[in-house]
Design a protein around this nucleic acid. Structure first.
Length: 312
RNA sequence: CGCGGGGUAGAGCAGCUUGGAAGCUCGUCAGGCUCAUAACCUGAAGGUCGGCGGUUCAAAUCCGCCCCCCGCAA
């Protein structure tokens, strides 16, 4: 039944891969649209997106337009393919109305939050940063505005205190694929009526900048810990000690007066700790510039002089 | 040719500038002290100093090429 549905998939990063895999298995994928290959890594080698890799491996038609808006060629190609449905997961570009209106079942988007909360570019990171206890997946019918489409279905997912954006991202990407498969037949058979979002309750998330990872030690360790978890693995929460950058990989907040100036490094339980405002950030694992991730316990064996410095 | 840090014992590091016996903090093993110990004392094992080549009486150290890891930038 789903196998008869001609589907076009729009997506780019890892988050979209489980959904694409599911669609490849369950529906009739006639084309995949992803962002153009980009330069990645130290050597600036041009690499395909994760979605492109999967698509090529499965011998599916792939399109990578530089821009979509006013791109007549591209829009005509989509028209000619005559899809029954378009499914979008983290594509990364705005899709114009001309395309949204094409398929008879419309354009469906998977978004990693419980809309109308956390619309925009960084729902997972922002939910963790704000200390939310739960978030989820929303499947909606797209309109021209960003993440404002009518909601088809939602599923919530708990955020654990040990969650990082990486771990939560991995769970949500799988949940999203599974959940889409579950609701898709009912949606197509019109057993679900999409309901509008309450725009008054909407909140927005920004594109994360590298600078957002810089730690300000003049604040509570619990807040810094949320920053660390929210920005792992990218761009990472970091600080400078001397001239060197240290990425904080894993830490724990301790509600105890550090009795030191904010930013001061010291030893606590054989690990490196840094004084925060009325609290202590106990660093379990970090990554010094030019080095691999390392337990601070191990780091201390050869770098005792790291203590009693000021992190900035 | 984007900029930069690094590869030395199981872990983390020093030694390289100015070539001359392989060292430090831990861990491991054995023994000692102790009511006891993750503490302390004594001893031991464990290294092709990333690889190949060159210079030299002599190379972790100087020179050349290569491999690998990482930070910035994008």
């Amino acid at each position: 039944m789903l196998k008869d549905i001609k589907t076009i998939f729009f997506g780019t990063p890892d988050f979209a891969v489980p959904t694409l895999n599911m669609l490849l298995k369950e529906t009739n994928i006639i084309a995949v649209i992803t962002q153009p290959d980009k330069k990645v890594g130290r050597k600036q080698i041009i690499l395909p997106s994760p979605i492109k890799k999967v698509t090529v491996k499965n011998n599916i038609k792939i399109l990578q337009p530089q821009k979509i808006k006013d791109n007549k060629d591209f829009i005509n190609q989509i028209k000619d393919l005559n899809p029954d449905i378009i499914i979008v997961a983290a594509y990364g570009k705005i899709i114009p109305k001309e395309i949204l209106d094409l398929p008879k079942y419309g354009c469906i988007n998977i978004h990693a939050s419980l809309l109308p909360k956390y619309r925009g570019a960084s729902p997972i990171q922002t939910a963790i940063f704000n200390g939310e206890k739960e978030t989820g997946i929303t499947i909606m019918v797209m309109n021209e505005k960003m993440d404002e489409g009518d909601i088809i279905a939602q599923i919530s997912e708990k955020i654990y205190n040990y969650d990082t954006s990486e771990s939560l991202h991995n769970r949500l990407s799988k949940i999203g694929a599974k959940f889409l498969l579950k609701i898709l037949p009912d949606y197509i058979n019109k057993k679900i009526t999409p309901r509008p979002q309450d725009n008054k309750l909407a909140t927005y998330t920004k594109i994360i900048q590298k600078e957002d990872g810089k730690i300000n030690w003049q604040q509570d360790a619990n807040k810094i810990l949320r920053q660390i978890n929210a920005f792992t693995p990218w761009p990472s929460a970091y600080t400078f000690i001397g001239q060197k950058r240290f990425k904080i990989i894993q830490a724990e907040a301790i509600n105890q007066n550090p009795k030191r100036q904010e930013g001061t490094t010291f030893i606590y339980e054989n690990k490196i700790a840094i004084a925060c405002q009325n609290s202590i950030l106990l660093i379990k694992k970090w990554q010094p510039e030019g080095k691999k991730e390392i337990l601070t316990t191990d780091y201390l064996f050869g770098n005792k002089n790291i203590i009693n410095k000021i992190a900035i």
